[in-house]
Amino acid sequence: MSDDVAAELREQFRTAFEGADFPVTDQMDLVPALPNGPGTRFEAGDVSFSAMELAATLDGHQEFPYESVDELVDDVMVALEAEGLI
C-alpha cells in the first residue's frame, strides 16, 4: 500500500469523524458525524469500503473512549494495517 493511499484515507477519516461529539464511547457515537451515515464510503487507490464495513473490520481493535479525532483516526489506521487492508 502506498503512503499516498494511507494519507488519503487518513484525511478522509479525519474529515468524516471530526464532527463527532468527543469523547466518543462507542461506534454508534460516530454515525451522526458521517455525511451519509453508515453508507459513507472511504476510497483511495484500490481500497474502498463503507463506514459499516469499516466498523465490522475494526471490531476488537478499537479502544473506546476516544477523546479526539486524531486519537480515533490513529487507531483506525493501525487497525487497518493490522488487518492487512493498507
Rank of each mutant, 00 (worst) to 15 (best):
Y66E: 06
V5N: 14
T15Y: 05
V73A: 04
E8I: 13
F49P: 07
E83H: 08
A82N: 14
P32Q: 05
Y66M: 08
L85P: 01
F22C: 02
L85T: 06
D74M: 06
V47W: 14
D26H: 07
G19L: 00
V31R: 06
D21M: 09
Q27Y: 07
D74V: 09
S48H: 08
L80T: 04
S2N: 11
V47E: 15
T40K: 01
F13S: 04
V69K: 04
P35L: 09
R10P: 00
S50A: 14
A79T: 05
E8A: 15
V76T: 01
F42E: 04
A79R: 05
H61L: 03
M52H: 11
F17R: 01
V73P: 00
S50I: 03
G45E: 08
A56H: 10
G37W: 00
F49Y: 14
D3H: 14
A6T: 14
R41M: 13
F64R: 03
L72P: 05
A6G: 09
G45F: 06
I86E: 08
A51W: 00
D3E: 15
R41F: 09
P23Y: 07
A79N: 06
A51I: 01
F17E: 04
P32R: 03
E11A: 12
M52N: 12
E63Y: 09
N36F: 10
S68V: 02
E81Y: 07
T15P: 00
E11Q: 14
G37N: 04
M77S: 07
D75R: 07
I86H: 07
E71C: 07
G60V: 11
V31Y: 00
A33H: 02
E8D: 15
G84E: 08
A6E: 12
D26A: 09
T40Q: 07
